[in-house]
Amino acid sequence: MATVILVRHGRTTANASGILAGRTAGVRLDDVGRKQAFRTAERLSDVPLVGVVSSPLERCRQTTKFVVEAQRAQGFDPQTPLDRAITECDYGDWQGRPLKELAGEKLWSVVQSQPSAAVFPGGESMQVMQARSVAAIRRHDAAFEAEFGPQAVWAAVSHGDIIKSILADALGMHLDLFQRISVGPASVSIIRYGSSRPEVMATNTDSGDLSWLRVAKPDADAAVGGGAGHPAA
């Protein structure tokens, strides 16, 4: 079973100004976001990644560049495909509008409490968003494991709602509960898909050593009682 590290892009100019960027072109990392992406890339530099799959939007490609440069500085050479299936949700007519303004829309409460019923006007539903992103992550995970073996570790650089929906699926949570999950800018979450169930190993982390991923041996069964923790790298 391979391991996927889910990385949200760093903070953007739209995040800082309270705008729902969606798929708007030209939305880039701000100074804070670049520093966040650099720190995350440094955290990941101890882990030889076999691939870094990115959403095609600029903010994710910028974040990916930091990750890949840090990998290559360590002598690693990950594959770097783009995948539209993990791009931002299509928010349709909501795209580019201030969040404060959107909070007054009737759909806002649906997004908050029953996202499985939310369909953005002129865009996609949150159910479709989750289905396409989960399918893409599982497809890449199986491909990397087939090519590099069960010890393979790879990263996917994507967006907040996308990563939240992937984590909800791995946790066995209904989409209507996914707003209980937080995914901050440049945060790291980790999933290991097993033969019997996914294992969510970390969510929304922005600090801490990840070198244990180099030597951790996946177990098919969950450790009753919690186990002994991660081995030292």
Results as ranks from 00 to 15, higher is better:
residue 140 H to C: 02
residue 201 M to Q: 10
residue 59 R to W: 06
residue 220 A to T: 14
residue 129 M to S: 10
residue 224 V to S: 14
residue 94 W to L: 06
residue 25 A to F: 01
residue 166 I to W: 05
residue 30 D to Y: 10
residue 174 H to N: 15
residue 20 L to W: 08
residue 44 L to M: 12
residue 196 S to N: 13
residue 157 V to K: 07
residue 109 S to C: 00
residue 85 A to G: 03
residue 157 V to P: 07
residue 155 A to N: 06
residue 169 D to V: 02
residue 204 N to L: 04
residue 10 G to H: 10
residue 101 E to K: 08
residue 93 D to I: 00
residue 207 S to A: 13
residue 222 A to W: 03
residue 231 P to H: 08
residue 23 R to Y: 07
residue 178 F to T: 10
residue 209 D to A: 12
residue 11 R to F: 02
residue 51 G to V: 09
residue 176 D to P: 12
residue 98 P to L: 10
residue 122 G to V: 04
residue 148 F to G: 01
residue 213 L to M: 11
residue 118 A to D: 02
residue 163 I to T: 02
residue 206 D to K: 01
residue 136 A to E: 13
residue 156 A to T: 05
residue 91 Y to F: 15
residue 182 S to P: 09
residue 100 K to F: 01
residue 233 A to P: 14
residue 129 M to F: 12
residue 63 T to E: 07
residue 22 G to N: 03
residue 28 R to G: 02
residue 63 T to F: 05
residue 170 A to T: 09
residue 178 F to I: 04
residue 192 R to S: 13
residue 35 K to S: 15
residue 75 G to V: 00
residue 201 M to S: 07
residue 10 G to C: 10
residue 109 S to A: 04
residue 202 A to T: 00
residue 97 R to E: 07
residue 12 T to W: 11
residue 168 A to F: 06
residue 166 I to S: 03
residue 29 L to I: 06
residue 105 E to L: 09
residue 82 L to G: 14
residue 139 R to G: 04
residue 81 P to F: 10
residue 13 T to R: 14
residue 104 G to L: 01
residue 205 T to N: 10
residue 204 N to F: 06
residue 59 R to V: 06
residue 218 P to K: 04
residue 54 S to H: 05
residue 160 G to Y: 09
residue 186 A to W: 00
residue 65 K to I: 00
residue 36 Q to D: 12
residue 202 A to G: 05
residue 74 Q to R: 15
residue 16 A to K: 08
residue 223 A to W: 07
residue 76 F to Y: 15
residue 6 L to V: 04
residue 48 P to V: 02
residue 165 S to R: 09
residue 70 A to M: 11
residue 140 H to P: 03
residue 78 P to N: 04
residue 105 E to S: 15
residue 73 A to N: 12
residue 7 V to R: 00
residue 126 M to R: 08
residue 89 C to Q: 06
residue 39 R to L: 10
residue 121 P to M: 07
residue 226 G to V: 07
residue 195 S to C: 09
residue 24 T to V: 07
residue 145 E to R: 15
residue 75 G to D: 03
